[in-house]
Every structure is written in structure tokens, then in C-alpha cells.
């Protein structure tokens, strides 16, 4: 089976047209009594992306996801999914699928009964996709959900969400409380689902090391605000770790926005916003990994959000 023609990847064509917008949040705020969980969040994500929503506990990730899928009403601002706000009608709600953190399933149902429930509740339901996935995963349809392992339960819940054939698939911490092997299997299942359907995925995680190669769009929430929002390859290409003798660090720190700085009295290390910096000979520039980048920003909640756009000719 060839997945080549199924997957769309807007935003990387020759003209660099970002294509349709899957998700657009404008001035989104949410307060619980006096507690402000989310403050003036605006972002837009192109369709067909796998978006990781990252941030420390209490950053507002769950609140943001529940606002996106219409489970919460914003105090201010609005959300659009593929250009339209969600309305509390079956046809409109069929455009988003949401997998809550506790993966609610009825333990007394068999897997087959769970699928039947999905078929009745969802107008766009894809039964062949659902049964095909579970067969590939080796999960028996006659098994009671309560008797499945944690990883298998997550796979069944994920299959339910994917077979809904929504435009936007939203997952709240789908990898939490899974062991490393199950995490890898669930991520594989999610990625194959993307290859099969081309659905836009938005999922939250506080484990950044799992995300390398998985998400192609990154949103960092920190203290209820959007700190980073953009294409992962571009974000990584727009940052460099510079190492060199301590006495040369000052002038470089004036040339580039510095996100993190550490070092000894002899050597300095700067994480900077720069693409291909021209450096003094005793300095070297290294590429930055996703985890390193995210951690550096999380430690600096005040760091500039604006990352200079990189031209499409840049590799």
C-alpha cells in the first residue's frame, strides 16, 4: 500500500503557500474565577500538520485544548477550525475528535461493542479503518476493554478518535502513564493514522524527548501565553548553539538574540536566534535539538517569541 498520494503537506511547496488553516485562535483567554489560565493566545496552524503543544504543568495546555474542541467557553477571544467556529450541532462537532487524558472507555464493553458505539455516535465513522487498525495491532475484537493493557486501551481510544474521520484530531497527553515501548507503539499508531487520513493533529505533551521527528509544528505554552509557534524545521534552523572562549561572548551576544547562556571562565555557550552566523574563527556553531530548544525557552518565559521567518530557499 502506498501512502504517497494520501498525505498532504501544505506550506513546503515551491511558492511556500501555507495552504488552508486548520486551527485559528484569536485573543483567546480563559479565567476560572480570579485565576487566569490562558491569556490572550493567538495562533494559526496550517492543515495537515502534526502539532505538539508543549509546556510545563499548569501552563494552560488542557484549557487550550478544551477551548479548541468546544468543551469550554472562552472568557474572551475565539477559535476557528478550518475557517469556521464550532457549533454545538452533530455536523459541526464531527469536524473535531477529542481524546481526553483519562481515555474514557467503558470497561464492560468488548472492543467490538466500543466500535459499534463509535459508529452510532459519529456521522463520518470509518468502520473499515477502525477494524483494519485493530487487526494490524493484534487487538481482539471480542476482548473486554477492561481486560486490555494500558497501551492497548490507548490504541483502542486512539482508533476510535481516528475512525471518526474528523478534520482535526485533538489529544490531551496521549502518552502520559505509558511505558516507553507502549509510547513508541502509540506514536506509530498515530503516525500511521496521519499517513492514512491526512488529518491535522494537535496533541499536548510535557515529555519533549518523545516528539523529535513526530511533530512538524510546535506550540509552546508558558504561564498561560503562547511563547513559540511555528514549523519545527524552521525553528530549529533559526537557532544555533555557539561555543567559544569566554572573552568573545559579549560581542556575539550583542549581534544575536540570546535565549540561553552558560559557561565557565574560559568557555562560553550561547543558544542564539541565528541561521548561518559568520563567527570569529575560534567559535563554532552547532545545530540545536528540539528538546534543547524547548527547554531553553521554557527557562526564559520572557524570551522573545518572534523568530525571524526563514526564506523558502533556505534548507
Amino acid at each position: 500500500m502506498s501512502g504517497e498520494t494520501v498525505v498532504r503537506m501544505p506550506g513546503t511547496g515551491p511558492a511556500d503557500d501555507p495552504g488552508p488553516t486548520a486551527l485559528e485562535a484569536t485573543g483567546l483567554s480563559k479565567s476560572y474565577r480570579r485565576n487566569e489560565a490562558l491569556r490572550d493566545c493567538s495562533l494559526s496552524v496550517p492543515a495537515g500538520r502534526v502539532v505538539a503543544l508543549v509546556g510545563p504543568n499548569g501552563a494552560g495546555k488542557s484549557t487550550f485544548l478544551k477551548l479548541v474542541v468546544g468543551l469550554l467557553e472562552p472568557t474572551e477571544g475565539s477559535v476557528k477550525v478550518l475557517g469556521e467556529p464550532l457549533r454545538p450541532e452533530p455536523e459541526s462537532m464531527a469536524r473535531v475528535a477529542f481524546l481526553a487524558q483519562d481515555k474514557p472507555l467503558y470497561p464492560g464493553f468488548t472492543v467490538a461493542e466500543t466500535l459499534r458505539f463509535g459508529r452510532i455516535a459519529n456521522p463520518r465513522w470509518d468502520q473499515d479503518l477502525a477494524t483494519g487498525r485493530l487487526e494490524e495491532l493484534g487487538i481482539p475484537l471480542n476482548r473486554k476493554v477492561g481486560r486490555l493493557s494500558g497501551g492497548q486501551r490507548t490504541q483502542v481510544a486512539l482508533t476510535l478518535a481516528i475512525a471518526k474521520r474528523a478534520d482535526l484530531l485533538v489529544l490531551d497527553e496521549p502518552l502520559a502513564d505509558l511505558d516507553p515501548l507502549a509510547r513508541h507503539d502509540v506514536l506509530r499508531g498515530l503516525m500511521v493514522g496521519v499517513a492514512d487520513t491526512g488529518v491535522t493533529v494537535l496533541f499536548s505533551s510535557h515529555v519533549v524527548s518523545d516528539l523529535e521527528g513526530v511533530c512538524d509544528w510546535l506550540v509552546v505554552l508558558n504561564g498561560g501565553r503562547v511563547q513559540l509557534n511555528g514549523d519545527v524545521d524552521r525553528l530549529l534552523a533559526g537557532h544555533r548553539r555557539l561555543t567559544g572562549p569566554a572573552e568573545g561572548a559579549g560581542p556575539l551576544a550583542e549581534r544575536f538574540p540570546v535565549i540561553a547562556r552558560s559557561g565557565t571562565e574560559r568557555q562560553d555557550t550561547l543558544l542564539v536566534q541565528a541561521t548561518e552566523p559568520l563567527l570569529p574563527p575560534e567559535w563554532t556553531a552547532h545545530p540545536v535539538g528540539l528538546e534543547e530548544l524547548v527547554l531553553a525557552y521554557l527557562r526564559r518565559p520572557d524570551a522573545a517569541v518572534a523568530v525571524p521567518p526563514i526564506l523558502s530557499s533556505a534548507r
Binding site: 501512502g3 498525505v7 503537506m9 495537515g48 500538520r49 502534526v50 513508541h184 507503539d185 506514536l187 506509530r188 503516525m191 500511521v192 496521519v194 499517513a195 521527528g213 513526530v214 511533530c215 512538524d216
Partner: peptide
Amino acid sequence: VDKLAINPNT
């Protein structure tokens, strides 16, 4: 994707 658990877009 099925082997490496990476994004098909990648």
C-alpha cells in the same frame, strides 16, 4: 512511519 514512529510529512 510504521517502523520509526515519525511524521509521514517528514
